[in-house]
């Protein structure tokens, strides 16, 4: 067998083997690998590369060596999932750098971090003052995670005592002109509804590049033909606006009339409308 054919066959087989080994070892990002996983990854690649270009080496040795490294990495990964101790050993532990707003100099020294390194990592997290930081921890991956002090944290709706309307994930129901049945079922809708909705907006399904349904059942469309203007979903905004208008009208009537009985009636209903607007507003915005 000529050498070049041998190299081609070896390459194809080793690529397949390497692909499956790496796939079985899990889909972690390169930066999330621990030391052992990194080493075994490099060695697996090295063995494959070495035996691909050298046609005189025994091919079975390559497979054997790769298999051993794969089994070792695989076992350690599975074991570390089971036991916290093994995990601490293979993955390493996280180190606290700042606690209660105070820098832990001992831990800095242990991890080989200088003041400048610490400040740089803090700046990466948008913290320029050590006094703004309540807690900072160095993860085994070398990433620093920072918890700012309470007053420096971004404001949330909870802080403002606002109850937001619960929000569900939108579903993509049309992609490249095809109806996707599964997401449509997830939004508890059916193709008949979708066809009716498309008819309402006066577009054909072939012209739709992307269609999404939000949690209120409103359909947003993006067309291939960008010259056609599609109305944005405004149903709920319209409803809210007409509620507000009605409330304002009633208030106006109450002010305009001289009859105390009518005034009382308009005022009463104006308040009902106000209450209705207050209740519906978070959902309709």
């Amino acid at each position: 067998m000529p050498e070049w054919i041998s190299i081609i066959i070896r390459s194809v087989i080793l690529i397949t083997v390497l692909f499956f080994f790496v796939k079985w070892l899990g889909a972690k990002q390169l930066s999330q690998l621990n030391i052992f996983e990194t080493i075994s990854g490099i060695v697996l690649g090295g063995i494959a590369a070495f035996h691909t270009v050298d046609p005189y080496n025994s091919f079975y040795y390559a497979l054997l060596a790769m298999f051993v490294w794969f089994i070792a990495a695989f076992t350690i990964e599975k074991l570390s999932l089971k036991s916290k101790r093994i995990r601490d050993f293979t993955d390493g532990k996280s180190t606290v750098f700042i606690q209660n707003g105070k820098v832990m100099e001992e831990n800095l020294k242990k991890e080989g971090y200088s003041t400048d390194d610490l400040l740089e990592k803090l700046r990466n997290n948008d913290q320029f003052l050590v006094s703004d930081v309540e807690f900072a921890v160095l993860e085994p991956t070398g990433e620093l995670n920072v918890l700012p002090k309470r007053e420096n944290r971004p404001i949330t709706l909870k802080d403002l005592n606002i109850t937001p309307a619960p929000d569900k994930e939108p579903q993509t129901v049309i992609a490249d002109g095809n109806i996707l049945l599964e997401p449509l079922a997830n939004a508890s809708l059916n193709p008949t509804w979708l066809e009716a909705e498309l008819e309402k907006q006066n577009v054909t399904i072939d012209n739709v590049f992307l269609g999404q349904v939000d949690h209120q059942g409103q359909l947003f469309l993006d067309l291939y033909d960008d010259h056609i203007a599609v109305p944005e979903p405004a149903q709920s905004a319209l409803l809210l606006a007409s509620m507000k208008k009605c409330q304002a009208d009633l208030e106006l009537f109450a002010l305009a009339t001289d009859n105390p009985q009518a005034k009382e009636l308009y005022d009463r209903n104006q308040k009902r409308l106000q209450e209705a607007v207050r209740r519906m507003e978070p959902y309709l915005k």
Partner: peptide, 8 residues
């Protein structure tokens, strides 16, 4: 209408 179309 909104009542009929929502599942929430």
């Amino acid at each position: 209408l909104l009542q009929a179309s929502t599942t929430e």
